[in-house]
Design a protein around this nucleic acid. Structure first.
Lengths: 341, 341
DNA sequence: CACGTCCTCTGTACCGTTTCACTAAACCGG
DNA sequence: CCGGTTTAGTGAAACGGTACAGAGGACGTG
């Protein structure tokens, strides 16, 4: 067999150490049991001397595993994605997996990303999605059908779909936020909602309504305004809401909450003296406002972590049925809420 | 040759289409020129019928390229990393590359990450580093020596190191911020600096001093306090600074700036009426404060993008010498700065 | 001493592509 | 009709590992 002299492969190491290729392979894969200390030492030294780096690509071809999982994110501009990456990367690293990352801003590029990652032979796929209520899933179901383990985060799936989901309990979070206001004695509680084409917005709105209903309070539609998660939309909504003189507002977003805070300031009112405020979302973002906003914190780092764990389970045991993991939010009470005057 | 019946490979496609493996390979790689329309169609149809997905791992083994680059980030908890990923991912996708992501919180895990990515045969490596002034580079220089294209972002390297760098001009940013305050008529300008073991902190401090010197202003050491980039440290530093009655403060960080703002509020003073403030860093974070903070914006998304571009150049032409790309910051004037009363 | 067992180590087919060297047929001008 | 060129397509050796089946020797046992 002719051999290129310049590249350092497992065969070169074997020759250098005077052993067989299999022995080197055994050494590299920790199968030290069937190996004398002397041989082990010679292999170790040969590797060292040649500065050998094993080629994972060749290994993956032979073993049909890449020890890599793909993370496809719908919206890399969304503020929620960094913690997801944080959690997923840590869990991957812990399990000796690598993370292949792709952004997929629209349905078509999501399809392409899935196809690309399948070609790259990832061992599994995680999709962290934007929360649109109607979203195409056929390519995922199809990939799943063909044996690619998949887990989704924050994505609606048809009933009984075999794909595990990690969901954030938006309903519960909104409920907790609103109940907190109720418990402080507020009776006229407004809501600035997210857009109605996203289930996050809808679920939060539903949680708000449920808490009101439980307290026997009426929900006027005049007290629920819709924003688009932007600072400006929060400002506008709050400005409009001020006419109805609510004593508290639950705001279904972080940037919107800061917008609302600004609107209240500009109107010459004070938080929490004149008006209590609860936000929803990235807690850092609203923590350093003045006053620090009470907010609902979603365990997003954990969502990334759990998604990886579920995925690894599926990789180990592909037939495990799809389950939904609902993650509970926490209410962080800070300075923007107070008992009604 | 025995063949496993169940896996759909290029050989199966070839048999199905009644052509050779080479022909299918040519088809897949767009070498349509040497191919009759009829053959092309038969191959296309066979691929379709079998639901064939080409195996990039095998392809990478044969071609010795993976079309993947590795991005190693020192500090995935740092607020600067999301925009870097954003820029890098977009540039990668545009060039048909994939992005393998790893977090490397300390020197040892950075070494491991580099080694792992080399094993995975990435075509090149980007390191986005925390700005410690003394940082080990030997493993990078060594990998470079052995032919792995590398680009670093935000990292010091020994003079004349052959590794291209993308740097953010912290000095210039601080200079612009301070000059802005000078131009508004401020004469007593304080500075809350970052830690002295990071070049970002040092460069910003130097830029501040340069602008003062240029205006013929004295720099008292009492007016320069050091924080650790946290909200709390900003609060404490500002609180202490208030005794010296500066009319303006340049703060070398975003969270510290919000802390400072809070301290000013708590002291019953107003921004910008009593005190002008300029921040540094993530502009979104301080945009929605009240008042919106004037800040220095570093082009971080672009840094990720440019790093990828430099890397792709190096991949195409490995002998290109190392260069340093210094990226210019922008001063965003908002509501927290005003002419001196 | 023959035999089975354990231990250590080896040879080589195979993973699924690419690509080089090559061939058969078609074409074409003179 | 011939020699040369172009066109369309083929066969098989890499690429760098893994892992199966098995070899050879040492050792214990009856």
């Amino acid at each position: 067999m002719r051999e290129r002299a310049n590249r350092t492969t497992i065969r070169r190491v074997a020759r250098e150490a005077g052993v067989s290729v299999t022995t080197v392979s055994n050494y590299l894969n920790g199968r030290h049991s069937q190996m004398s200390a002397a041989t082990r030492e010679r292999v170790r030294e040969a590797i060292q001397r040649l500065g050998y780096h094993p080629n994972h690509v060749a290994r993956s071809l032979a073993t049909r595993r890449t020890a890599t999982i793909g993370l496809i994110i719908s919206e890399l501009t969304n503020a929620l994605y960094p913690p997801v990456i944080l959690g997923a990367e840590a869990a991957c690293r812990h399990a000796q997996y690598s993370l292949l990352l792709a952004n997929a801003p629209d349905a078509e590029s999501e399809r392409r990303a899935v196809e690309l990652m399948r070609r790259k032979q990832v061992d599994g796929l995680i999709l962290f999605s934007v929360s649109f209520i109607d979203i195409a899933n056929d390519h995922l179901l199809c990939a799943h059908e063909e044996g690619v383990p998949i887990v989704v985060i924050n994505r609606t799936m048809p009933e009984g779909a075999p794909i595990p989901r990690v969901m954030l309990d938006n309903f519960r979070g909104a409920y907790l936020a609103t109940r907190h206001l109720v418990e402080l004695g507020h009776r006229c509680i407004a809501h600035i909602a997210g857009p109605a084409n996203r289930f996050t917005g809808l679920d939060r709105r539903a949680g708000y309504l449920a808490a009101l209903a439980e307290a026997g309070l009426e929900s006027t539609s005049a007290l629920v305004l819709e924003g688009d998660y932007s600072f400006e939309s929060g400002y506008r909504a709050m400005h409009a809401l001020l006419d109805h003189r609510p004593s508290a507002v639950f705001i279904g977003g972080d940037a919107m909450a800061l917008g609302a805070l600004r609107a209240i300031r500009d109107a010459g009112l004070r938080v929490p003296d004149d008006l209590s405020l609860v936000a929803f979302g990235n807690p850092d973002f609203v923590h350093y406002a003045t006053p620090a906003l009470t907010t609902v914190d979603l365990p997003i780092v954990e969502a990334g972590k759990i998604a990886v764990e579920l995925l690894l389970e599926r990789i180990a045991a592909p037939e495990t049925p799809g389950e939904t993991r609902m993650l509970a939010p926490r209410l962080l009470v800070r300075e923007s809420t107070a008992p009604i005057a």
